[in-house]
Design a protein around this nucleic acid. Sequence first.
DNA 1: ATGTTATTTCTGTAATTACTGAAATCGGAG
DNA 2: CTCCGATTTCAGTAATTACAGAAATAACAT
Lengths: 172, 172
Amino acid sequence: MELTPAIGKFVLHWGEMGTRWGINRTVAQIHALLHIAPAPLHAEEIADTLGVARSNVSNSLKELQGWGIVKIVHVMGDRRDHFESIHDVWALFQIIMDERKKREIDPTVAVLRECVATAKADGEELAQRRLGELAEFMESMSGWYMQVRKLPPSGWRQLAKMGNAIGKLIGR
Amino acid sequence: MELTPAIGKFVLHWGEMGTRWGINRTVAQIHALLHIAPAPLHAEEIADTLGVARSNVSNSLKELQGWGIVKIVHVMGDRRDHFESIHDVWALFQIIMDERKKREIDPTVAVLRECVATAKADGEELAQRRLGELAEFMESMSGWYMQVRKLPPSGWRQLAKMGNAIGKLIGR
DNA sequence: ATGTTATTTCTGTAATTACTGAAATCGGAG
DNA sequence: CTCCGATTTCAGTAATTACAGAAATAACAT
């Protein structure tokens, strides 16, 4: 797998973006590489292409598999594992959203609810209100996302184009 | 400003969440503290409450002001700057989204477009297609967000409740 | 079984990022 | 201008995170 100028630039940028969103740089780079790869790659190929240690690739791939955006595939006559990422960007986005919701949003809402309960018990009215509002907001966003996520990609696309119409529908 | 159990728990959790989304822990903690504070706080009060250095607070507050979610306010008869955060969660969310779009999404789309152009010039058809799809997806999401962001908070809330209706409207 | 290659785990190190405390700067008040 | 409190800057240090390379394990072929 050779790094052409276009691909190299993309991989580097994607890596940087990763760091800004709490994703390890190498993990993001590998994801980028697999995303544009014409065929599944094996670990050593990735290590060579990106110039990182084999072990680093191994761990990063585990991470990506944990997120569910990279799968192992096998190639006839080759004992090595090959890796492939989801190429459908809408599906990719959905998986990442689902995962972040599960790992971060849901637990946060749970903690907020606990805090609200404690605040109530301790008679801290203001804290109770503020934290309650925050919890409600997050649940509201979550709930909305859970609705839209069921739509097929085409539905999402339509939704994206409907911004104006929705504004009118609601009657701002 | 004393840290009650409820508030302490919230501040700690918010700090952790920050790290997962690429926000410095202290920055996130200060934001959390200001979010539930009954009145604007001055820097030293924040430093004492969270047990971090005064300079750390100063820099973190600059960061939060850069994001536009914390403002300086002045208190009669007090020379010190006091800090207040936006308490409306919907407004807060919108500001953060706007900022991340400006700082990360838009530049990424720009880079993707450049990569597509390069890929095209170099005759890399697959890369061109994949990167093009990614760029289009991100622009599509951006555009959609730009539409909805104009709605008043009440509109957002309605939108959140409309998930089902929208599904039917689109006719999945 | 033994050898061979692929993969993972683990430990030490490197790099990065966050933080502190001191020093410098700022900005009014007298 | 000089003083004094508030704030910021900066340089050194601490803590965290990412990484490489070695060692261990696994998976298969012979």
